[in-house]
């Protein structure tokens, strides 16, 4: 039943919804078919090829040395990131300082620590003993009060933290600097005009806005750091996840399943970090976007509420 209304008599119009046949996309179905075949092949081989060693993996995944390795890996990641962040912010501020000695020394730090491989740096920290056998506390070029042996002062874990943390600081410094530079100059001016000091301006006006630019790459760095911890074998620090997993693998003559086991742990941990990153990013998007991006939960709720989706 349809009524044809002519323009000019708006009162009498009814509003029947449009019922049209949607455009068909046969190409999409072909694509879906191809992907489905590959996915089926992958799942089939995962399930049927005994060399994956799933039973071995499930047997060892929560074994004490592995779980302890996960703990050490996480601890290394977070402590190194804290060192990297704190030192990175300091270096970025130094780099932007009007004092040429400050900005120059920050530049040299970034140049040296970003310009050499972490693996080499870790090795150097572990062998700093070869360079300085003792460390002393005293007046520079004058008398010494306390003397320590480097061997006892820098155990493997501390060497790992130094290597990872200082390397990270160089990268974080550049990320933070980019964030600070991304804030409009007018903001600093306005804050100055209200009578804020340089430090107050930085803390209350510039840094909160710079965070929006700083957070995404920092999350990236954290995920990257989690994986970089597997390089501490250069020291060698042997308690972390990958070394423990491959040690078990070598003992059982099954190195491959144990590498998969380590990968499963790394993937699980990075997935958790990604969730955290999403919510932190959302928090700092305040004021920069009209509407905050929906959380996954909100997305699903909306999609279900609408019934059929349009894509």
């Amino acid at each position: 039943m349809s009524t044809v209304s002519t323009p000019g008599e708006p009162q009498a119009r009814s509003k029947p919804p449009i019922e049209a046949v949607p455009v068909r996309h046969p190409g999409r179905w072909v694509g879906v078919g191809i992907v489905a075949i590959f996915a089926a092949m992958l799942v089939h081989s995962l399930l049927t090829n005994p060399n994956w060693g799933w039973s071995l993996i499930s047997e060892w995944i929560f074994a004490p040395p592995i779980v302890k390795g996960v703990g050490v890996t996480l601890l290394l990641t977070f402590l190194s990131m804290i060192i990297g962040l704190a030192l990175g912010v300091l270096l970025a501020i130094m780099r932007l300082s009007p004092n040429p000695v400050m900005s120059g020394s920050a530049w040299v730090f970034v140049w040296a620590f970003r310009g050499t491989p972490v693996y080499v740096q870790l090795f150097l920290w572990a062998n700093v003993i070869a360079l300085y056998t003792t460390l002393s506390l005293g007046i520079p070029f004058g008398p010494e009060f306390f003397t320590f042996e480097t061997k006892t002062l820098i155990p493997a874990f501390v060497a790992a933290l130094l290597g990872l943390g200082l390397n990270e600081a160089a990268y974080m410094a550049e990320i933070v600097r980019a964030g600070i530079l991304s804030v409009d100059e007018g903001q600093e001016e306005a804050a100055t005009a209200v009578g804020m000091s340089r430090l107050q301006t930085l803390r209350h006006i510039v840094l909160p806005q710079a965070m929006r630019v700083i957070v995404p790459p920092t999350g990236n760095e954290t995920i990257s750091m989690l994986k970089t911890t597997s390089l501490v074998i250069a020291i060698p620090l042997t308690t972390e996840l990958f070394f423990q997993a491959s040690a078990v693998g070598n003992r059982l003559f099954q190195p491959f399943p144990m590498a998969i086991l380590a990968s499963i742990w790394y993937l699980a941990l990075t997935s958790i970090l990604m969730v955290g990153q999403f919510y932190i990013e959302r928090y700092y998007a305040k004021g920069a976007m009209r509407e905050l991006p929906p959380t996954p939960i909100q997305k699903w709720r909306r999609r279900l509420g609408r019934g059929g989706s349009n894509d």
Partner: peptide
């Protein structure tokens, strides 16, 4: 001394 900027320069956060 009060001052309003040309482009206002409000703090968006």
């Amino acid at each position: 001394i009060g001052m309003v900027f040309q482009r206002f320069n409000l703090f968006p956060h």
